[in-house]
């Protein structure tokens, strides 16, 4: 189980890196999205995977049962999901603008702003 999710995180990270390194700006965005997923899954998994029950206290209980999933990690991931969504939306528009302004997908033109 854990080994499998570790593998999943690794595959996400590898595919994200590949997309970042090999392709144009559009795929760089896809890569960033994939990396963000990898990081979220890492935070979620590193805190320990739950057994299927939720971090919600049942109606008749006063506290969570033993072996509950880590609610703090879930809260962190939730925040991270939202933040990476905001950043991704911003990037997407940036891509659109770069394209509109330079007429390329924006990366080769970058070299010209340097020297």
């Amino acid at each position: 189980m854990e080994t499998l999710s570790a593998l999943l995180i690794g595959v996400f990270a590898a595919c994200g890196t590949w997309l970042l390194l090999r392709h144009g700006l559009f795929r760089i965005l896809l890569g960033l999205a994939l990396l963000a997923q990898a990081a979220n899954l890492l935070v979620f998994t590193a805190a320990g995977l739950g057994r299927g029950d939720t971090a919600i206290i049942a109606g008749d209980a006063a506290a969570l049962p033993d072996g509950h999933p880590d609610p703090l990690a879930q809260a962190l991931v939730l925040t991270a999901i939202v933040i990476s969504f905001g950043a991704l939306a911003f990037c997407l528009v940036l891509l659109k603008m770069t394209r509109a302004r330079t007429g390329t997908s924006g990366i080769d033109a970058l070299a010209k702003t340097e020297s």
């Binding site: 760089i28 990396l35 950043a87 990037c91 770069t98 302004r101 330079t102 924006g106 970058l110």
Partner: peptide
């Protein structure tokens, strides 16, 4: 935009 793209991507 060119500079901003690098800035945004690398910081992400």
């Amino acid at each position: 935009f060119e500079g901003a793209t690098q800035y945004v991507v690398i910081n992400m």
